[in-house]
Computed example of a mutant assay.
Amino acid sequence: MITDECINCGACEPECPNTAIYEGGIEWNWSGGTDLSEVEMEDGSVIDAKEMQEPISDEFYYIVPGKCTECTGFHEEPQCAAVCPVDCCVPDPDYEETEEELLAKKDWMHNE
């Protein structure tokens, strides 16, 4: 997650291999940076992966938890945290996932 200490520098956004990071106020979609064409939601409904979603934050850069793999399978460490000049890219206690879960998510998003 990105905390409210974010200075909106944007250093993190291009580093994300899943395109899970967005500028505050910007809509996002599942297809950006992934191979997904449709996504089954928690309620069982299926949406087009290109369908735009509401921003998670209007003020600061944000990370879409469902697209974040903490760079597992891509890099040794989360690249957003590595480049953040104010250390505001931190683990989200509401979305703790094992390495196996993160790898499965990466494979799901990138059809591997």
Rank of each mutant, 00 (worst) to 15 (best):
C84T: 02
H110L: 15
I26Y: 02
D48H: 10
F60M: 08
P55K: 05
G32Y: 05
C84I: 04
E70L: 10
C84K: 03
V83G: 01
K106L: 00
N29E: 04
A82T: 12
G10E: 09
C80D: 05
H75Y: 15
E51L: 11
G44W: 06
D35V: 02
D4I: 06
E99F: 05
M109P: 02
S57L: 02
T72G: 03
P65Y: 04
V39C: 14
T69I: 14
I56Q: 13
C16N: 05
F74P: 06
V90N: 04
Y62C: 06
G44H: 08
E99T: 14
C16D: 03
M41V: 07
V83P: 04
E13D: 09
S31K: 14
P85T: 00
C80Y: 04
W30D: 03
I21V: 12
Q79P: 00
K67E: 12
P14S: 05
C71P: 09
E112H: 11
A82Q: 12
A81M: 08
V64F: 14
E42T: 09
D92H: 01
C80E: 06
P65S: 07
T3Y: 06
P14H: 02
E70T: 13
L103S: 11
S57M: 01
W28R: 03
W30V: 04
A49G: 07
E13F: 05
S45Y: 07
P55A: 02
C84A: 07
V86F: 06
S31W: 00
G66F: 01
Y22E: 07
P55N: 09
K105H: 03
K50H: 13
E76D: 15
Y61S: 09
S57P: 04
G32N: 11
A104H: 01
K106G: 01
C6V: 03
E42L: 13
E101W: 08
E59L: 10
F60C: 04
W28M: 04
G44E: 08
E51Y: 04
T34W: 00
A49D: 07
A82M: 12
E51H: 00
S57C: 10
E96V: 13
E23S: 09
E99A: 12
E101T: 12
A81R: 09
S31N: 09
F60E: 02
P17F: 14
C71V: 08
K50I: 11
H75C: 12
V64Y: 10
C84V: 04
T3N: 04
I56T: 03
T3P: 05
V86R: 08
Q53V: 11
K106Q: 10
G10I: 10
S31T: 08
S45T: 15
C89I: 14
N18R: 08
K67M: 09
I26L: 06
P65M: 12
I56P: 05
C68Y: 01
C71S: 15
G33H: 00
P91N: 09
G66L: 05
P91M: 05
M52I: 12
T72I: 11
Q79V: 06
V90Q: 07
Y62R: 08
C9D: 08
N8G: 01
D4N: 14
I63W: 02
T3R: 06
C16H: 04
V39I: 13
